[in-house]
Simulated assay, not measured.
Amino acid sequence: MLGWISNVSDKKDTATAIGTYSGFQSICTMLASSLAGLIWYQFGANATFIITGIATVFISIYFLFFVKNQT
């Protein structure tokens, strides 16, 4: 992914683009972990893993049927 970012950004802005990507990645990871922790605290471990599994199935279906191969 970082190679793609460095290819599409200007050479003088490469470090800023990679830093911005890493920052957003960290924020999204923190939000996902907080949401999983909230579900775990409110409903227990089983609910957390069931919801995560269901989300994984939906995302897999999306990638299999709705995303075209660009290569």
Rank of each mutant, 00 (worst) to 15 (best):
K68T: 14
F49M: 10
T71Y: 14
I39H: 01
T71N: 14
T14D: 00
I61Y: 11
D13L: 03
Y62H: 13
D10S: 13
V67S: 05
T56E: 10
Q42S: 11
L2E: 11
Y41N: 09
G3R: 02
S6Q: 02
T48A: 09
V57N: 02
A45M: 14
L64E: 09
N69V: 07
F43L: 15
I39F: 01
T48R: 14
F24T: 12
A32P: 00
A55H: 10
I59A: 10
S33V: 15
D13G: 04
S34W: 13
N69L: 10
Q25T: 13
I27V: 15
I59P: 00
F65E: 03
V8P: 00
A45R: 11
K11V: 11
M30T: 12
T16Q: 03
K68R: 15
Y21S: 01
S26G: 07
T71H: 13
L35Q: 08
N7D: 10
Y62N: 05
W4G: 10
T56N: 12
A32L: 14
L38R: 12
I51F: 04
A36W: 01
I51P: 00
Y21K: 09
S6P: 00
I5W: 00
A17H: 00
A55F: 14
A55I: 11
N7L: 11
G23L: 08
V67L: 09
D10G: 11
Y41W: 14
A36Y: 05
G53P: 00
S60C: 15
I51A: 03
S22V: 06
I18T: 01
S34T: 09
S22T: 13
I5R: 00
V67A: 05
A45F: 11
I61H: 07
N69A: 07
T20Y: 10
A47F: 09
S6E: 04
G53Q: 02
C28N: 07
I39A: 04
A45L: 11
N7P: 00
L64K: 07
A36E: 08
G44T: 03
Y21I: 01
S33Q: 07
G23Q: 06
T14L: 02
F65V: 01
Y41V: 12
A47E: 15
A32F: 11
L38T: 09
S60V: 13
T20F: 09
A15T: 10
N69Q: 11
L2N: 02
C28V: 10
I5H: 02
L38W: 13
V57S: 04
T16F: 09
I59H: 12
F43A: 06
N7A: 12
K11F: 08
